[in-house]
Amino acid sequence: MTHPDDLVVLESFPPPRPTTNPYITQLSQVLSRTSGLALRHFSYRAALTSRYDVFHTHWPENLVGGHHWYGRVARRALAVLLLLRLWALRVPVVRTWHNLERPSDLGRIDQWLLDGFDRLTALRIVLNPVTEQISSSPVVTILHGHYRDWYGHHHQPPATPGRVGYVGLIRRYKGVEDLLAAFARIDDPAASLRVVGKPSTPELEETIRTLAREDPRMSVRLEFVDDADYAAELASMSLVAMPYRHMHNSGVALAALSVGRPVLMPDNPVNRALAEEVGHRWVHLFTGVVDEHDVSAALAAASTLAPTDRPDLSRRDWDDAGTAHLVAFAAATSREGKRR
């Protein structure tokens, strides 16, 4: 039940569905049960007519996009009205910073609208302690929560010895082709490679299928998978590889760690901090383009883990995240009040 003194927060996402990003679903759940906070889910009717104290956005580009031209025109017009309302009523924007850069395919109008949301942003939430400061807005770190509870009720098979795997949306910058090429150079008949996820283009899908056909130790499942299959595929791997050519935050890494599987990731400040946090036995790093030596070394290290071993994810409890978000929202309203 909403209390008159609750801080009313409008999130930039609608009520979660079964296919919604698990981070968003878990955040919605924890904010809904956080004392002192009243959560509202996004619709343009709510955004333009209801009362709220804070607007919390994650990927503001979703507010202006669309698959058809008429949808984009309508969304852009509504986004202008929303910006005007936020400005007129002095409603602070809190932005959770998931990606360092905007999508590369945005048009000039969309860039202008996103600049408007940036100007109204009173506070930014970053998901790790080493995200670089990119604006003058105050920054609060709230670590990305774990997925132990989310995947805990799904079947998790034992790890297949020697299996390296990739799970998630497949895009060019994620370097899945590099992983396939590196694995092909590993001279170990007991090793295997599993790739699961939907490629972003037909051309990328064909490239991956062609590479996989050249080695019988490789198998692919190039489609979107639901949570149950996602958890089962992750758990079946002895090592989860993220051969990204560049990366910042990674929900896949936390998903793998949440089911007790070590990860191989690019060497950067974010991933080094994660290794310090959860233990170096769980986070293995490579530089440049992933190669067979990186994969072999990480796979050998993974084989030394006991089935009952688990990484330290104690700093990523979701109830702690709920309280931290409330504090951040309150700080944003206080800061906006001082500017009036």
Rank of each mutant, 00 (worst) to 15 (best):
H153F: 14
T121Q: 09
T201D: 06
P199K: 09
G165E: 02
G152L: 11
G168Y: 03
L180Q: 02
L106N: 00
L204S: 06
G175I: 03
T207F: 03
H144Y: 12
V220E: 01
R194S: 10
L120M: 10
A228T: 15
L222S: 09
E132I: 09
P129G: 12
G116C: 07
V176W: 01
D226N: 13
V164H: 05
T131P: 02
P103I: 11
E214T: 15
Q111D: 13
R119D: 04
I208A: 04
A212K: 00
M218C: 15
D188F: 03
P202D: 10
D110P: 03
P161T: 07
Q156A: 02
Y151T: 06
P161F: 05
R217Q: 10
A212L: 08
V130H: 06
R217T: 11
V176N: 04
S104M: 13
A159W: 01
V130F: 08
P103V: 10
L169F: 15
T141M: 10
R119P: 01
K174L: 08
R171C: 08
F224G: 13
D118M: 06
S135W: 07
N128V: 04
P103N: 10
P129V: 10
D178P: 02
A182V: 00
P216D: 13
D105C: 03
V140K: 13
E223W: 07
I186N: 03
S104L: 12
V196D: 00
L204W: 09
G175E: 11
R119A: 11
V196P: 04
A212D: 05
S136T: 14
E214A: 15
D110H: 04
R185Q: 14
R124T: 12
V126W: 08
E214F: 10
S192H: 05
Y151I: 09
R209W: 12
F224M: 13
H146Y: 00
P216Y: 11
S136A: 15
Q156N: 06
H153Y: 12
R163S: 01
D188M: 07
A122M: 08
Y166Q: 08
P199W: 00
L204M: 13
D227F: 05
R172S: 11
P161K: 02
N128I: 08
I134M: 14
R108Q: 13
L113Y: 00
G162A: 07
S219L: 11
F224Y: 15
N128P: 09
A212Q: 05
H144M: 12
L123I: 01
I142V: 14
R124Q: 14
A184Y: 09
R209L: 12
E132T: 12
D105A: 09
A191R: 01
S219W: 02
R172F: 13
A191W: 00
G116P: 04
S192D: 00
H144R: 10
V196Q: 01
W150I: 11
P158C: 02
G145E: 10
L179T: 02
Y166K: 07
A182T: 00
P189A: 14
T201Q: 06
I170Q: 00
V195T: 12
D227G: 10
E214S: 15
G175A: 11
A228I: 09
V126M: 07
G152H: 08
D226F: 06
E223S: 15
L143D: 12
E205P: 05
G168L: 05
E214Y: 12
S135C: 06
Y173D: 14
Q111S: 14
L120V: 08
S200R: 11
Y147G: 05
S136I: 14
Y173F: 13
L222C: 05
T160Q: 03
G152A: 13
D110A: 12
